[in-house]
């Protein structure tokens, strides 16, 4: 188990259909695998390879480049504290130390109950609201030590409802209705100039 469920396999096929070449779907499918299991399993990578006509090694080769993909179990809530320049200026170092003490793990570690993984990450594009963090990629801004404690307590008590479990990113999926798509084909099947470009010639002739 850890191959895609039937539902996810059909989502995977729909994702692949939105790219001119199946291999382009590798990153979205790795995200889908992580959404299903919380991390990327070997079986999921095998399944992705089957669906995209690639090899499991290619899937891992691509996936291992990107730090959001976890190839081992992580906490259900991954807390990413930004420590890049502005957050550093605004107190990220002491926030990180506080987080380590509160959770009882060092950066990179996962709590014994499997609930939290703590990471020290690069700029998360919230610099004016430093120090900033993300939990499963949901923002918390201008975070104080008290805010952090509250956040951890809220997650433990199940009241931080805006945060899905690790692996889930967008809660909305793109979907192109069958009768609305312009038609996505491999490049070698799209050699004709786009029809509306004939408007340029028509205008020149007038």
């Amino acid at each position: 188990m850890s191959r895609f469920s039937l539902d996810n396999e059909s989502i995977a096929r729909e994702i692949i259909s939105r790219y001119p070449r199946p291999k382009s779907a590798l990153i979205p499918l790795l995200h889908l695998a992580q959404e299903q299991d919380g991390w990327v399993t070997i079986d999921a990578m095998r399944h992705i390879a089957e669906l995209t006509g690639t090899t499991p090694a290619e899937v891992m080769g691509t996936g291992s480049f990107y730090e959001m993909f976890k190839f081992h179990p992580v906490g259900r809530y991954v807390i990413n504290i930004c420590s890049n320049i502005t957050c550093q200026l605004m107190g990220a170092e002491s926030l990180l130390e506080h987080a380590e003490a509160k959770l009882g793990v060092k950066v990179g570690g996962t709590t014994a109950d499997g609930l939290f993984t703590l990471e020290d990450v690069e700029c998360i594009a919230a610099c004016t609201e430093a120090p900033a963090l993300q939990v499963n990629y949901r923002y918390r801004l201008r975070v104080t030590a008290e805010d952090f404690d509250q956040l951890v307590d809220d997650i433990r008590s199940g009241t931080a409802r805006d945060i899905p479990e690790h692996g889930t990113l967008s809660l909305v999926r793109q979907s192109i209705p069958a009768d609305r798509g312009a038609g996505i084909v491999p490049p070698e099947q799209a050699r004709e100039v786009s029809v509306w470009m004939a408007r340029n010639d028509a205008a020149e002739q007038n």
Partner: peptide, 15 residues
């Protein structure tokens, strides 16, 4: 109109 195009949303994974 005669203008047709698809937009595919894709996202990265931390790099």
């Amino acid at each position: 109109t005669d203008f047709s195009v698809d937009i595919t949303l894709s996202w990265g994974a931390g790099a």
